[in-house]
Write a protein that binds this DNA or RNA. Structure first.
Lengths: 196, 196
DNA sequence: TTCCGCCTCGGCCGAACGGCTGATCCTTAA
DNA sequence: TTAAGGATCAGCCGTTCGGCCGAGGCGGAA
């Protein structure tokens, strides 16, 4: 009703489950599809992947409208190819704007969801525990090479030091980061943004 | 004018440059600040950092309103602590919604900007070479644990298999990914999004 | 000047890693 | 039925890793 009341919009179909959503969407090829996450037969994410996922030749614009704002749904939906994610408490204004944006090839996400996305994007660079003891520059050199899969011997060659020196640095890094092996160093490096 | 016309909004100040924006915002402490990127004396990003950046004790809600939609501005603004990013072609509806969202602690970003953000978020998952030979489910289990720093012995325990089995899987993974050691497996896992 | 932190190096040793060969069991496809 | 691939396991072997000890040089701070 809300959408049909808009002069530039027309609801061409309404379906009962995910399987029907896929078939009708493929038949009618609407400008925008509104999908719920929870649907019988086919999950909203699976429908999204079928209509707009990676590898689809003529992807449709999909806006997810749901009451579930769990992070896993949000990331799953946006990774599946959705061009919008609305919570049902968003009000009619945002619903209309989201459809208009999707039709234009843009994307509108609920503000309460966006704020969480931005938090993930704003600070992807911090050590999990505050790290009382920061790494020295030289130790960071070693960390970066270790994180790229170099052996100790290769690190030594690239830094022009001996194997013993590399192992000494590694010992300090283990102690400072509180980890037990080089793979955990690599994981820390990726999480904290030391390597990209 | 647009905002003052809203019954639940009031414009308490309007300033001419960034320095004035900081001082007035600190004096009046409005619920929401609207900032342009290009301002005399102080950049909009610098103002944002001063009012809402990391380390500020009582951060204000800052919405950037600008005509410049360059990616560097967007990421800079959102990393500086902005809770909204609007392009001036967004229309009054989104402006009002953005202010309302910011006041509620949420964040609204222009659809044309959001779609670019989602593209960055949607596809941090592809192997550099197309990978002619995909990993099996079981091998992915091993990859995920290896990437978190588990030893072969621990992987075996967590997957309820023997150490030999883990080493066999590892051999297959080495061959399929074309890597030489477990740290390169971890690096591949982080780059391709297998682990987060 | 003395101290402290950082970087450098060597040797020893047990544990973990990675390569290799070969084997069984199961499911699916030809 | 046979073939093929995935998952499981065993043993052997050389290399690498990581812990531990000690040591020297060098720069800045007390």
């Amino acid at each position: 009703m809300i959408l049909d009341a808009q002069p530039d919009m027309e609801v061409v179909a309404a379906v009962a489950d995910g399987a029907e959503a896929v078939s009708e969407a493929r038949r009618l090829r609407p400008d925008v599809c509104l999908l719920d996450i929870r649907m019988p037969k086919l999950d909203g994410l699976e429908v999204t992947r079928a209509l707009a996922g990676p590898g689809v030749e003529n992807p449709l614009r999909v806006v997810i409208v749901t009451t579930f704002d769990l992070d896993e749904y949000v990331y799953g939906a946006l990774r599946s190819g959705a061009t919008g994610f609305l919570l049902k408490d968003s009000g009619p204004t945002l619903l209309i704007e989201a459809v208009r944006a999707a039709a234009a090839g843009d994307a509108l996400v609920s503000p309460s969801v966006t704020v969480r996305l931005l938090q993930h994007l704003a600070q992807p660079k911090r050590a999990a525990p505050p790290m009382n003891d920061p790494l020295t520059d030289r130790e960071l050199d070693v960390v970066r090479l270790i994180a790229r899969g170099r052996t100790n011997q290769e690190v030594a060659a690239e830094l022009f030091v001996s194997l013993s020196t590399v192992k000494t640095h590694l010992g300090s890094i283990f102690a400072k980061l509180g980890v037990r092996n080089r793979v955990e160093i690599a994981a820390w490096a990726w999480e904290s943004g030391v390597v990209s």
